[in-house]
Design a binder for these strands. Structure first.
Lengths: 146, 146
DNA sequence: TATAATAGTTCACCCATTAAACTATTCATT
DNA sequence: AATGAATAGTTTAATGGGTGAACTATTATA
């Protein structure tokens, strides 16, 4: 019974998480990203907060290899959304930052993100959302310690 | 102030959700899927519960096109994990189900999933987890109604 | 019977990822 | 100061996942 209960919770957790991710992704594609993929939007959003940063920072943030970052940055660079600049003291390092166009795109995108997710989260009362977010943060801490 | 608060919640929500997804994905790759990708594991898990079902069912479940399902099912079919069987009354329809090998793989995988996620979720007390799951389910309902 | 609709596949194209080999540069030890 | 190790990033080849349009085969309908 104790055992069965936990497995039911796990089933509910996985199916709900998957469905939330899929549906949020659809909303993002339709109303937020527009001309970007989800991964590109995530990378530019990281850059928006942490620029200037390096390829290695991005690889670490998203738990992917550096060659995957190179490929993605190349696409964004060719579209004029990202700048590359070599460090003058350590010429191995390349600093990445948003171009003016990239910055503008992400300001619009962030606003749309706030609008779309805001509509959804406003259907919770503020205690409920606070509790939910705290549990989510706890889950992150547990996973980090793992 | 009310406005700023909501946007902070959205930032916390998105970054936590992303980090949970990434870290759970890493755990799944290391300890649960093994010889499968995350998407393949999800598809086989759906099949495990809903077999026999069609390509269109899978496309609908995961919000992807039928051609994407064909590609994925081909790979699983070639590995001997999925069976295809035409409906004798309506020969347009192809029913998909797990082979014996697929079934065994997924029984093992499901047990590993329970072990890995069980360890994590047990760090919450049962009230906390219940509340969290309920909010997650509410989020799903809101997204469905959207 | 001719036309619509449906289920699934194929094709051409793109994005994301890995792993190994590589270039260029800097660091560290002798 | 020279050499060998470490670091940052790129290239390449391969795989998986996705879209959308065109296609085949089959069934439903008017």
């Amino acid at each position: 019974m104790e055992h069965r209960k936990l497995n039911e919770i796990i089933e509910t957790y996985t199916s709900s998480m998957n469905e939330v991710n899929r549906r949020v992704n659809v909303l993002m594609n339709e109303q937020v990203h527009q001309e970007l993929t989800t991964d590109q939007f995530s990378t530019l959003r990281f850059l928006q907060k942490k620029q200037p940063c390096t390829s290695s920072d991005i690889a670490h943030e998203f738990s992917i290899g550096k060659s995957a970052v190179t490929a993605q940055v190349n696409r964004l660079y060719e579209r004029g959304l990202i700048d590359r600049k070599r460090d003058q003291d350590d010429r191995r390092i390349v600093y990445l930052s948003l171009t003016a166009e990239g910055k503008k795109l992400m300001e619009d995108g962030t606003q749309k993100l706030y609008d779309v997710l805001g509509d959804i989260l406003l259907e919770f009362d503020s205690n409920e959302i606070e509790t939910f977010i705290q549990s989510l943060e706890k889950l992150v801490r547990i996973l980090r310690e793992n």
